[in-house]
Simulated assay, not measured.
Amino acid sequence: MRISLLAAALVALPLLAACGGGDDKPADVSQADVSKALQDGGLKDAALADCAAKIYVGQGISQAGLRVMIKNDAKSAAATDPESLGMSKEDAEKARAATSKIVTDCLKQQ
Rank of each mutant, 00 (worst) to 15 (best):
S4C: 11
L6E: 13
L6Y: 13
L6Q: 12
A9N: 00
A9T: 15
A9S: 14
V11P: 01
A12C: 06
P14F: 00
P14G: 12
A17C: 05
A17G: 06
A17Y: 09
A17M: 08
A18E: 14
D23C: 04
D23P: 01
D23V: 02
K25T: 06
P26L: 02
D28P: 06
D28T: 00
S30L: 06
V34C: 02
S35I: 03
A37I: 05
A37D: 12
L38G: 02
G41L: 07
G41D: 13
G42I: 11
L43V: 14
D45C: 02
D45K: 04
A46V: 11
A46M: 01
A46R: 13
A49V: 02
A52D: 07
A53V: 08
A53H: 11
K54D: 13
Y56R: 02
V57E: 10
G58N: 06
G60N: 07
G60T: 14
S62P: 12
A64W: 02
G65D: 10
G65Q: 01
L66V: 03
V68I: 05
D73S: 08
A74C: 03
A74M: 03
K75R: 11
K75P: 00
K75W: 01
S76N: 09
A77H: 04
A77E: 09
A79W: 09
A79C: 09
T80K: 04
S84Q: 14
G86V: 07
G86M: 06
M87G: 00
K89V: 12
E90K: 14
E90G: 04
A92T: 00
A97C: 06
T99C: 08
S100H: 13
K101E: 15
C106K: 05
Q109T: 01
